[in-house]
Nucleic acid binder design. Sequence first.
DNA 1: CTACGGTAACTTACCCGCGGGTCACTTTAC
DNA 2: GTAAAGTGACCCGCGGGTAAGTTACCGTAG
Lengths: 202, 202
Amino acid sequence: MTESRAVGTKGMPREEREAQLVVAGTEEFGRAGYAGASMVEIARRVGVTKPLLYQYFGSKDGLYLACLHRAGDRLTEGVATTMAGGGEPEQMPLKVLSAIFTTFDHDRYAWRLLRDETVPGSGDIAAAAADYRRRLDAFALLGATQLMTSRGLADPVDIEAIAQVWTGVVDSLISWWIDRPDEDAVAMSARCARIMEGLFGW
Amino acid sequence: MTESRAVGTKGMPREEREAQLVVAGTEEFGRAGYAGASMVEIARRVGVTKPLLYQYFGSKDGLYLACLHRAGDRLTEGVATTMAGGGEPEQMPLKVLSAIFTTFDHDRYAWRLLRDETVPGSGDIAAAAADYRRRLDAFALLGATQLMTSRGLADPVDIEAIAQVWTGVVDSLISWWIDRPDEDAVAMSARCARIMEGLFGW
DNA sequence: CTACGGTAACTTACCCGCGGGTCACTTTAC
DNA sequence: GTAAAGTGACCCGCGGGTAAGTTACCGTAG
């Protein structure tokens, strides 16, 4: 294992090719959803054929899981760091948005993997995605609770609803952002800040 | 044609069966998306087989279009009526939400047909759905413009973003509502009113 | 320096199940 | 007996998945 560098091989080292395939897979899964994405298309994007993809990832689920873990780990880590920073409840949404935009500026489809509704209802993917969603929902719930209690409201079902709407807002903003590739993370954060200030005075 | 009532037939009159199939199709398409829904499953829900479905609607696209038109017409009509009523810009979101909840209390999946991303990129369905979305987006844009100008903000791109986020909010609320069948339209409207009052003072 | 063998990267050609779509046929009420 | 309601059994393309073979690079023997 030590120094296993480029022993008898053609093309590109596996590690590098796998990374390419995960990037292409993330875009394709994000665009078309798990069910709608085609393995041959993902391979084609990288200039490779399907069997190589299967040799490296085993199955469609295997590739999806690789993409999902990369996206989910980065996302939960970024949000956790931001939330840990603390601050006024009204400021958290904007801070979290900025963190997301910055982290995924060049990988905008990644967010969608966690919210993909076309994945099979049971199995490894469903479990992993549910786990990431659970962690993110916990942050959303925490933020919503802080916001509501700071205003003297505490109906737990209302708070659940707000948390779910919040994830929907992030979803919408990212979809909007995907359609405008020229808008970078900084501009996007500034836009959101302007809007929140204007609409809610936050 | 006059008095064409039940001439030599078994089972159920076509009109009635078609209505059943449209209802079942709306639920199934709303749940699984155009691509994920299965024609045989939709037929099975009604206690009928696939060939009858094809005899009545011609194709998957034909059935989807029937479902889409029913949902789209009711939705645009309801929103148009509400918007025409006028009122304070801060009150419009809640009014529109109430109208949607009331109209679709027993048909909660209908909204999703207009926002289904798994429909083919071109063809009759894409055109019809795009048309309904265009009409609804125009209302959203109008509402967002009124809201923003009442606060002295006028960046047209910001307004576009707000309009898209608004549709995402409706989406989230309806998804949340679908998961809570016991919550009726009145309770749902009350919840939204409470939240908007609490969070934004609207 | 060249011939050679080994291994990893990569491909061609195939299998198979699932779901859209169709045909010929049967059942039931008037 | 006629016509609409309804069905069983089939075709076919598409996409996930696989078996077997080929290509290119490297290290080493002569």
